[in-house]
Design a protein around this nucleic acid. Structure first.
Lengths: 221, 221
DNA sequence: TTGTCGAATGTCAGCGGCTGACATAATGTT
DNA sequence: AACATTATGTCAGCCGCTGACATTCGACAA
């Protein structure tokens, strides 16, 4: 950001930074392979590290704990979401802005900018791994609410509100996060029903949002 | 439940069961004291165990992990909520039923049935401990999600719906959980503003629910 | 009371996540 | 080429957690 050269220029960034990036990516990659193959609990940090020919100590210099390496790609997607949300035009209302931002994230993933060419299917497998691993699920949920806090701040900024006084930004961020999560769950539960990849995911989110009103209404019959 | 004698009768339950109950309660009690005094991370399981004069191994026979002993009282409250919700009259709509159930939980806590006489202030301290301890927060959120699943099942049963098809129960359960959590946060952030104890908590939840509609509406200005 | 059975507890050894401290090697800079 | 900086390796050690086995304690009947 601070450097005038573009991020894609290999000369702009020193060998040191490139190397760090490489080993980090290699660690994430090896971890995913091992987690999906043998399960999260049965995979040792030593195994991940030695797969990349790196000491265990080095692993913990890149990731604070074992969960973080599993959730790394998700964290990048969440950061991208925040960027997109900040960049949405000011005339959109909060809900429109969030829908637009989440659409941009999935489009970026489809373009293969999210770590590897087949990030779509990989994302699905990752969701299943997280949902079926209590430790990962817990860590993921904790990150999600942190994400909600920052989303709420962005929304409050856009609308010129004080988030400490007005609870609506926080509330809407939380509800939005819930809807997205439930969509991921439905999607992972039956991927074949929405094979059109990310189109299906967006459509699901829309449908869930449409049900929000009826769900809050008095009676369901 | 299965025995005809009342649960309060000390003779109905053997010495064995009573002893187990005692050590379990003692462990929870000691753990809370130490956590609140020295912090969660700086408290060792060995310390908790030796405080009750019990081996570390025994501790792990009562609680699957260190988090569980911290969240034990919360787990009881959540179980009570499910019971109350199941017992709500059938003519109430989902939202009314949940509001009624949460009210009953707080009333029970006020009556001191939730582990000790001053469960109210203790509950507040516990919330703060959880929110300020990443590990505990993660575990708590995971439990909350599980709670939402069971709440959704109860709601679907009440309304005669199939939760696998109709997403509204799950959605409403999640939104409700979010509202309750945000209420706890607001409450813990400034307890003096709602000193009327549990009255204040219920009023907070009501206010948050009232803001749900406006938060979902298009524009906030 | 005594004897027997099952359940609860203690002890021990060990794995795996994680950290601090220090030495070494690699990289960037002058 | 010499130096400063930074990444990495090595080692020791704490703590959470588990399996296996021995021991003790409460329940129940003879």
């Amino acid at each position: 950001m601070a450097t005038p050269t573009t991020a894609a220029d290999p000369q702009s960034v020193g060998l040191r930074e490139r190397k760090k990036r490489r080993t980090r990516d290699a660690l994430v990659d090896a971890a995913h392979r091992l987690f999906l193959c043998h399960g999260y609990g049965r995979t040792t940090v030593d195994e991940i590290a030695s797969e990349v020919e790196v000491s265990q100590r080095t692993f913990f210099r890149y990731f604070a704990n074992k969960e973080e390496v599993a959730l790394a790609v998700l964290a990048e997607a969440e950061a991208a979401f925040l960027e997109f949300l900040r960049a949405r035009p000011a005339e959109e209302n909060p809900l429109e802005a969030m829908r637009g931002a989440v659409r941009e994230v999935w489009q970026a993933v489809d373009r293969g900018q999210g770590g590897g060419p087949d990030s779509g299917p990989a994302a699905l497998e990752l969701f299943e791994l997280i949902e079926s691993t209590p430790t990962l699920l817990a860590a993921h949920l904790r990150h999600s609410i942190q994400q909600e806090v920052e989303v709420a701040r962005i929304l409050a900024d856009r609308e010129g509100l004080d988030p400490a006084v007005d609870l609506r930004p926080r509330l809407l961020a939380a509800v939005f996060g819930t809807v997205v999560r439930l969509s991921h769950l439905s999607y992972a539960a039956d991927p074949d029903a929405h094979r059109h990849s990310m189109d299906g995911m967006l459509a699901l989110i829309e449908r869930h949002f449409d049900q929000l009103g009826p769900a809050l209404a008095g009676s369901w019959r």
